Simulated scan of single mutants.
Amino acid sequence: MLIACTTVPSYPLPSAMEERVDTLIKNQSKPQPELFAHRIIDWQQRHGRHGLPWQGEDVYHIWLSEIMLQQTQVITVIPYYLRFVASFPTIAALAADSEEAVLEHWSGLGYYSRARNLHRTAQLIMQQHEGKFPKHFEDILALPGIGRSTAAAISAFAFHERRAILDGNVKRLLARYHAVEGYTGEKKIEAQLWQQAEALLPQSDVAIYTQGLMDLGALICTRSKPQCPICPLQKDCKAYQTERVAQLPTPRPRKVLPEKHSTFLLLLNGPDILLEKRPGSGIWGGLWCLPQIDSQILIEIEDAGAYCLQQFCMETTYPLTLSTFTHTFTHFKLHITPLLLQVINNPKQIQEPGRIWLDVTDALQAAIPTPVRKLLRQIQAGHRVG
C-alpha cells in the first residue's frame, strides 16, 4: 500500500521574525547566569527607568544619589537631590561649605549620618585624592559611609567595572529567584546571596544590568503585590514556581522595639523659638532641636517652669501640654510630649554656644529633625499637635 506524502513548501520568514527566532534559539542555549543577565538587560532597556536626574552624570552625582538612595525611595530623593546639587555643584563646593549647611539641605531626609559622612568624604577627596573621586574599588570602599554594595554601584555606573550589588531590592529579588530561606539580614544568608550576585554578573553591559536589577526590584519584584505576570524572570523564578512569592524573602524576626519618652519644650518669645544644637554624634547628630527633658526627670508639668528658670534663666507662663505623638527609629520608639511655654522676660540678651533664637519660619529652614519640623509647622499654622 502506497501512502502519498505531502511536502510543506518552505517560505522565507520576514527578517524581523528571523531575528526573533534566532534570539530565542540563542537564549535557550545560554547558561543560566548568562540568560538571567540577558533578561535583566533586555527588560531594563525596554521598561526600566531612564529619566532619573543623576543618570548619565559624572561620578560625583552618582555617588551623591547612591548615598541618598540608601534606605530611601527614589520619589523622596529626587527633590532633595536637585536642591543639593544646585547648592553644591561639585565635590570642591561640598567640601568647602560647612556641615551645618549640608545638614540644612538634608533636613527631613533622615539618617543624618549619611550627610555627615558625605561632607567628610568630600573633604577627604580634596585632601587625599587631589579633588578627584577615586576610581579603584578599594579606595572607594575606604571612604566614610560607603559599604560594599554602594561602592560596587558607583564602580558599575561611573567606571563600568564588573561589580555585584546587593541592596535591599536585590536581596529580595535573589531570595525569590533562588527560593532562599532565612532572613536576608542574617550573615550566613547574606553571604549566600553575595555569592549568587557575583555568579550572575554579565561580562558586559554591567551598568545597564545593575540599573535593571534596581529597577526590577523597585518596580516589579516589590515587597507587597509583586507583578509576577510581567516579570522577565518569572519562568525560572523558584518562588513563583512553588507559589512562595508571598513567603519569600523570610521576614525579619519580630522583636519588640524599646520605648523611650521625652518632653520637648517649645519656648516661644513672640515669633521666635529656642533651638539647641545636638552633639555631633548619635541621634540627630549636629541638628538643631527643641530643648528636651527626660520625662522621668519632669515628674509634674509645672516643674517645666522651674526647669526653664534654672537652665535658661527664663520666666515662663504655665506650660500648655500638647498631644503626645510617637516617632519611630530603627531601634526604638520615642514618645514625645510637647510643652508650649511663653517666655515672660527677654531672653534674647542671653547668648550661649549651641543655642539660638529663630523666627519659627526661619527655624523651618534650619537643619532640624522631622519631629521638630512637624511641631513647628503646626505651631506656625496655629494648630496643636495630634
Rank of each mutant, 00 (worst) to 15 (best):
H331A: 11
H136S: 09
T23K: 09
P31H: 09
V372N: 01
A175Y: 01
L334A: 05
E276M: 10
Q310A: 15
I368R: 03
Q128I: 02
L103F: 01
G286C: 03
A151C: 09
E302A: 08
E66C: 02
I3L: 11
E99M: 06
V245P: 05
H327D: 09
I75E: 11
G280Y: 07
A86D: 13
V8F: 04
D205P: 03
A381C: 03
S113G: 06
I379S: 06
P226N: 05
P291S: 00
M314W: 06
A95T: 01
Y183P: 06
R377F: 10
E243R: 08
L309I: 09
V85P: 10
L257M: 11
I140Q: 11
S98P: 07
A153F: 00
Y183W: 15
T210I: 04
L334R: 12
P291W: 03
S29I: 06
I154Y: 04
K225I: 02
A304K: 10
W288P: 08
E198N: 13
A366D: 08
Y318E: 12
A158R: 07
Q311N: 02
R278T: 10
I140S: 05
M68V: 00
I140H: 04
L233Y: 06
Y318Q: 12
H327P: 05
N27E: 13
L233M: 13
L219Q: 15
G285W: 02
P251H: 09
L248I: 14
L213H: 02
S149H: 03
I356H: 05
F312V: 11
C228E: 06
T321R: 15
Q351A: 13
I273Q: 00
Q241K: 12
G270H: 00
T321M: 14
I41Y: 05
S107Q: 02
L109G: 01
H129L: 03
T210S: 14
Y318N: 09
Y60K: 02
P14H: 11
Y209C: 04
P371Y: 00
A16N: 15
L82H: 10
L341T: 01
P249N: 12
E18Q: 13
I189W: 00
I379T: 12
K260D: 14
Y209H: 07
Q73P: 04
T250G: 10
R120N: 12
K348R: 15
K30Q: 14
Y307L: 13
H261F: 15
A86F: 01
L322Y: 03
L201Q: 05
Q70Y: 04
E276V: 13
V102E: 04
